[in-house]
Amino acid sequence: MKRGLVTESHVVIYCDTCGDVLTDADGESICFDTTSQAISFLSVKIGGWIYDGDRITCDACTATAECEANGHRWPPTWQQAIWANSSVEADCHTCGITKSELAQEN
């Protein structure tokens, strides 16, 4: 039986792109007993995290890469020509970036 303060090892999942840690609903990092257990968890593709056998990518980096490759997905009621001159915000359906955030990047 273990008692008191005991040092133990565990596996935590980090994004290879940005370094973000995989957390539960309360914002606490999820700890696994083994690397195999962590890989099995990722194979469920929980919350958009992807493991390709080599690299781990978080949901935010996955969404950003999707938008960089295929463009942003704006609400279907928005027309690009109207949207460009509008002061109303719209969020990309994929990555969540807003019109003003996109303008600041460019």
Rank of each mutant, 00 (worst) to 15 (best):
S9G: 01
I50M: 13
S86G: 09
Y14E: 09
Y14P: 02
C67T: 11
Y14N: 08
S43A: 15
V6Q: 03
A90N: 05
Y51K: 07
E89R: 04
T98M: 14
T17Y: 02
G53K: 07
Y14L: 10
G27M: 03
D54A: 14
P75N: 02
E101Y: 01
G48K: 12
V6W: 00
P75Y: 01
D26F: 00
T35V: 07
T62F: 10
E89N: 11
S29L: 09
Q80Y: 11
G71D: 11
S43F: 12
I97Q: 13
G53P: 05
S29A: 11
D91V: 10
H10M: 05
K99F: 10
H72S: 04
Q80N: 13
G4I: 06
P76M: 05
D16K: 02
P76A: 09
I82K: 05
I50A: 12
E89V: 06
A81G: 06
A63H: 05
A63M: 08
D59V: 00
N85K: 06
T94F: 01
N70E: 14
Q79G: 14
G48S: 13
V21F: 06
W78P: 01
K99T: 15
S100G: 09
I82E: 06
I39W: 00
I97C: 14
A90T: 04
A81S: 12
G19P: 09
R55V: 14
C95N: 02
V88M: 06
T34L: 12
D16Y: 01
